[in-house]
Design a binder for these strands. Sequence first.
DNA 1: TTGTTTGTACAGAATTTACTGTATGTACTG
DNA 2: CAGTACATACAGTAAATTCTGTACAAACAA
Lengths: 182, 182
Amino acid sequence: MDEDLKLERARMRVIDTITQNMNLYGITPSVGRLYGLLYFNEEPMSLDSMKDELGMSKTSMSTSVRQLQELKMVEKIWKKGTRKDLYHSVDDWYQTFTDYFSIKWRKGISQNIASINKSLEEVSELLESPNTPIEIKEAANNDKDRFLYALEYYDWLNRLIDTFETNEIFKFVPKQKDTPKN
Amino acid sequence: MDEDLKLERARMRVIDTITQNMNLYGITPSVGRLYGLLYFNEEPMSLDSMKDELGMSKTSMSTSVRQLQELKMVEKIWKKGTRKDLYHSVDDWYQTFTDYFSIKWRKGISQNIASINKSLEEVSELLESPNTPIEIKEAANNDKDRFLYALEYYDWLNRLIDTFETNEIFKFVPKQKDTPKN
DNA sequence: TTGTTTGTACAGAATTTACTGTATGTACTG
DNA sequence: CAGTACATACAGTAAATTCTGTACAAACAA
C-alpha cells in the first residue's frame, strides 16, 4: 500500500499549508490542523475520532471545535443512530473569509468610536473654556485633530466591512478569475 | 492644573482604544500602546523618553519600535544635534491598514500555492496510474477537488491584496464618506 | 430506577511568548 | 587616542496561553 502513504503525505502537506495560513489570521495551529482534518474527511467526525487522529485530549477537541463553530468554519451534523456529536467543515472559504474578518474587525469598532467621541467632547470643552491655559489649548487642538482623523478612519473601516458582509466585495474582486459575473 | 489632567485622560482613553484595536490585528498591547504614544506626541521621541513614558525597559522599546518600523507604522527621524535615534508615527492609517494586510497575507500565499501544486501533481499521478487501487483513487479524487478549490481561493485572495497594494480598494470604498473622489 | 455514554468546566501542568538586565559593539566627542 | 553615549544581541526570568486529566452533568438505555 505505497499509494496509500503517498496520498496521505500529499494531503498532510496541504493541511500544514492551511494550518499555517490560518495561524497568520490568529488561529492557533492545533485549531487550524483540526479544521484541515475535517476539511478533507468526507464523513463528519466525532470528538473521539478527532482525538485519535490528532493525538490530543478530548477536551481540546471539544474546545477547538467550538471555536471553529463560532467562526462558522465547522457545523454540527445530525446523524441517525449515533449519540455522538458529529462535525463537518463548512467549505465556502470566501464566505468564511468575509465572515471571519467581519466578526473580528467589527467587534471593537463601535466601542472604539464611542470612546473617541467621549474624549472628543471633553477636549472640546477644554477648548471652549476661558479657564484653559493657552499651551493646554494648543495640545488639545492637536489631540482633537487626531481624534477626528481616527473617527474618519473607523468610518471607512466600517464601510469596508459592509462590503464584506453584503458580499459586495465579490463584485469588485470576483471569485472567478475570468468571468466578471458574481 | 486640572485641565492638564483632563486632557491627559482623554488622550489615554483613545490610546487604549488604539491599543485594543491593534491587538485585534495581532499586535501586542505594549507595541500598540507605544504606537499610540508616538501618534499623539507631536515631537518625535527617543528610546529613552519612550522608556520613561511607558515604564518599560529600553530593550523593549528598541524591539517594539523596530516591529513598528517593519510594519511601516513608525519612521526614524533625523534631527540635527542629537545622537539619539528619534521616531515618529506614520499617520496615514489607510495606507497602514492596506500595507499591514498586504505584508501579512501575501507572506504565506505563494509558498502555499506551491505546496498545493506539488500535492496536486502527486495526486494526479496516482489517479493516472493503473496500479492504484480503486478505493484510493476515490479518495484521491476527493482530495484533488479540494486542492483545486484551495488554489482558486488563494488566487482570489491574491487579487484582493492587489487592490490593497494598488490602492484600488479606495475606488470601491472611498476614504471620504460623501465625496466619491479619491 | 441504575448503569452507561458523551460532552464540558475547571484546576493544574506544560509550553510558548513577552520582557528585563547585562554585556557588547559602534559611533561620536574631546 | 581614551572616554562617553547610545542601540541592540543574548540569556535568563516572568507572564500569558494552550493543553491535559479529573470530575461532573446531561442524555440516553435497559
